[in-house]
Measured scan of single mutants.
Amino acid sequence: MTEYKLVVVGAGGVGKSALTIQLIQNHFVDEYDPTIEDSYRKQVVIDGETCLLDILDTAGQEEYSAMRDQYMRTGEGFLCVFAINNTKSFEDIHHYREQIKRVKDSEDVPMVLVGNKCDLPSRTVDTKQAQDLARSYGIPFIETSAKTRQGVDDAFYTLVREIRKHKEKMSKDGKKKKKKSKTKCVIM
């Protein structure tokens, strides 16, 4: 069974824990209790493949930012979460993405942009803004509501699919490099 290491990042209060708990335990946590770091595991079937999701729910508070490099190193894919009623959390996505790329030393890291709290009427981040940002990053965008469960499975499952595509691409690139290195030079 394939294991996928997913990391949920975003500013404090955007609903990272609520999304994760909704996926794992099928219930909505409405009281806000700032996370330092929590880890969850769940076995699911995605596109006919049974897999184990190892999900790291991270601290959004700035005082825990020193811990970010460590979990970013171990993560295979990242859910970059903002709240649709919090423009600052949307603007912060850029910083999370840049930090992930720096730590992973790669421009090509599996990510999904997630606009959470889409059940709320007080939207300050337009869907088109988020779609445009995701398009500019070359990553999928999904709106979710941890409260109603809308888009929750889709967000995590899409990230797994992005990781699969990335692994497939990397193995193809690896095979191309191996083929090239088999060419021999004969000096007579």
Rank of each mutant, 00 (worst) to 15 (best):
T2Y: 10
T2D: 13
T2Q: 15
T2K: 13
E3L: 08
E3Q: 08
E3G: 11
Y4M: 09
Y4E: 11
Y4W: 06
Y4Q: 08
Y4V: 12
Y4P: 14
K5L: 03
K5F: 02
K5D: 13
K5A: 07
L6I: 13
L6N: 02
V7R: 07
V7T: 10
V7L: 06
V8E: 02
V8F: 03
V8L: 10
V9W: 11
V9E: 03
V9C: 11
V9R: 01
G10R: 00
G10S: 04
G10P: 00
G10H: 00
G10D: 00
G10A: 09
G10N: 01
A11I: 11
A11K: 05
A11Y: 08
A11W: 07
G12K: 01
G12R: 03
G12S: 10
G13F: 13
G13K: 11
G13E: 15
G13D: 14
V14T: 13
V14H: 11
V14C: 14
V14N: 10
G15D: 00
G15M: 00
G15V: 01
G15L: 00
G15Q: 01
K16D: 00
K16W: 00
K16A: 03
K16T: 08
K16M: 04
S17I: 06
S17G: 03
S17Y: 00
A18C: 08
A18R: 05
A18E: 01
A18F: 00
A18V: 10
L19H: 07
L19Q: 14
T20Q: 14
T20Y: 02
T20C: 13
T20W: 02
I21C: 11
I21Q: 13
I21D: 10
I21E: 13
Q22H: 13
Q22A: 07
L23R: 06
L23M: 11
L23A: 15
L23S: 15
I24R: 04
I24M: 09
Q25P: 03
Q25N: 09
Q25D: 03
Q25F: 08
Q25A: 09
Q25M: 12
N26Y: 15
N26H: 15
N26D: 07
N26R: 06
H27T: 11
H27I: 12
F28I: 04
F28K: 02
F28G: 02
F28M: 05
F28T: 02
V29D: 10
V29K: 15
D30I: 10
D30G: 10
D30Q: 08
E31S: 06
E31H: 05
E31D: 13
Y32N: 05
Y32P: 02
D33A: 11
D33I: 12
D33L: 14
D33T: 09
D33V: 10
D33K: 07
D33G: 06
P34R: 00
P34A: 07
P34T: 02
P34W: 02
P34E: 05
P34H: 02
P34G: 02
T35N: 00
T35L: 00
T35G: 01
I36E: 02
I36H: 03
I36L: 15
I36A: 00
I36P: 01
I36S: 01
E37L: 00
D38C: 03
D38L: 02
S39A: 13
S39N: 09
Y40N: 02
Y40K: 03
Y40F: 12
Y40I: 03
R41V: 08
R41E: 05
K42P: 02
K42G: 09
K42L: 10
K42H: 08
Q43E: 05
Q43V: 05
Q43L: 04
Q43Y: 07
V44A: 12
V44R: 05
V44L: 06
V44N: 08
V45R: 13
V45W: 06
V45A: 10
V45M: 09
V45P: 05
V45T: 08
V45C: 09
I46E: 08
I46M: 10
D47E: 08
D47A: 08
D47G: 09
D47F: 03
G48P: 12
G48A: 10
G48M: 07
E49V: 10
E49R: 11
E49T: 11
T50P: 15
C51N: 09
C51I: 05
C51G: 11
C51L: 06
C51D: 10
C51A: 11
L52P: 05
L52I: 13
L52N: 09
L52R: 12
L53N: 07
L53Q: 11
L53Y: 12
L53I: 15
D54W: 02
D54A: 01
D54Q: 05
I55H: 02
I55M: 08
I55E: 01
I55C: 13
I55Q: 01
L56Y: 06
L56S: 04
L56F: 11
D57Y: 01
D57V: 03
D57Q: 02
D57W: 01
D57E: 05
T58S: 08
T58K: 03
T58V: 14
T58Y: 14
T58A: 10
A59V: 14
A59S: 14
G60A: 05
G60D: 13
G60F: 04
G60T: 06
G60C: 10
Q61Y: 12
Q61K: 04
Q61G: 15
E62S: 10
E62L: 15
E62C: 14
E62W: 11
E63G: 08
E63W: 03
E63F: 04
E63N: 07
Y64F: 15
Y64A: 15
Y64S: 15
Y64H: 12
